[in-house]
Write a protein that binds this DNA or RNA. Structure first.
Lengths: 193, 193
DNA sequence: GCTGAATGGAACACTGATGTTCCATAACGG
DNA sequence: CCGTTATGGAACATCAGTGTTCCATTCAGC
């Protein structure tokens, strides 16, 4: 018998936690390429049986929610690492850009997820989101960000550039580094006053 | 009996052409919001019976192909209207941006369509695409476009900004005009040398 | 090595979308 | 006004994905 475990996010016994991660990671990688992939495909990609997937996520929506939560956590962690409150706001956004870029497939998924499921956490104001918007406003004040660009537009812009950068590595076959360079170069000029 | 008609794109008799357009337009509007919408939903949105949809497009993929072709035509037309060869290349891109912006839902769909169907026409070099890339190169020469940004990156950038602009009207509830202003403002700064 | 937890696979019922056929009715056009 | 053309709706077969159950097997940890 096991105690309460299986609460909110993480799993309990080592084996279960590992299997759960394997499924979620495989699902993120697979759904980023094809949001309509079946649970059977996810199971195959994770290297487990379809039955096992259903054991961890009785309903498809449960898996989707778990993915959403997982990505959200990664976003929060990346935001923390970017130390948004240090130095000029414009520089902070560049650091954030680099951190977010490392999210990889999770990034792609965030663009396509609205179609996957009506995931409740997106439009809600997350801590990371608020911190971002606050930083843009700080940039308006400290003069490092063009004050003609309101916060929401800058947020959209950053996400778009990140998406473009990833697309650039795929379509133009560019290296991650050169894509990031272009991305930052463009961001810097776009938000400069 | 009807003659050859029904060739490549357009339909034949007036009534058929009108119904066909109604279905395609409804499908574009609907699929832009939910790419997984069923043919029954499309029929309802178009104000016709599900049977009629199947009569025009025996298979779902046929409808998807028709949509792709339709959007592609609109893109070509918009590109022509932008008169890319007139004036400084940077200004030409701004005009193009404005024209593309008017594509509306078609724009949204172009981002999500790769998942809808393996539509052959996307990666193929269309006339509009080549004209675009050529214009960017012209901008590198005439000094109106930052030569550190290669053609493909500028193309990705323009599409991203357009997507952002539309997203901005939805999420931030901005007017089309103010979204376009932000979009152009940002593009101008981003591509300036 | 032993025991319970974890897994894989087969078999099943269920659902929603797709695609087809047929017929009665409405609209179009000369 | 009449015949052709286009349409709507019902009924049907089919199919793929989902979710469930059961059982034999394997694995992990003590």
């Amino acid at each position: 018998m096991r105690m309460v475990e299986e609460r909110s996010g993480a799993a309990g016994s080592g084996t279960r936690a590992r299997t759960r991660r394997a499924i979620i990671d495989a699902a993120i990688g697979l759904l980023a390429g094809d949001p309509t992939a079946s649970l059977g495909d996810v199971a195959a990609a994770a290297g487990v049986g379809r039955t096992t997937v259903h054991r961890y996520f009785p309903e498809r929506s449960g898996l989707l929610t778990a993915i959403g939560t997982d990505i959200l956590e990664k976003v929060e962690a990346a935001t923390d690492r970017a130390r948004l409150d240090d130095g000029p706001a414009a520089k902070a956004l560049e650091r954030l850009c680099q951190e977010y870029f490392e999210l990889g497939d999770g990034l792609t998924l965030m663009f396509e997820t609205p179609q996957l499921a009506t995931w409740s956490g997106w439009d809600e104001e997350t801590a990371a989101d608020q911190h971002f918007l606050r930083t843009v406003r700080r940039g308006h004040t400290d003069g490092s960000i063009d004050s003609e660009l309101d916060e929401e537009w800058v947020r959209n812009l950053v996400w778009s550039l990140l998406y473009s950068a990833w697309a650039h590595t795929r379509t133009a076959g560019a290296s991650k580094h050169s894509a990031m360079t272009l991305c930052l170069h463009t961001l810097r000029k776009a938000i400069a006053p």
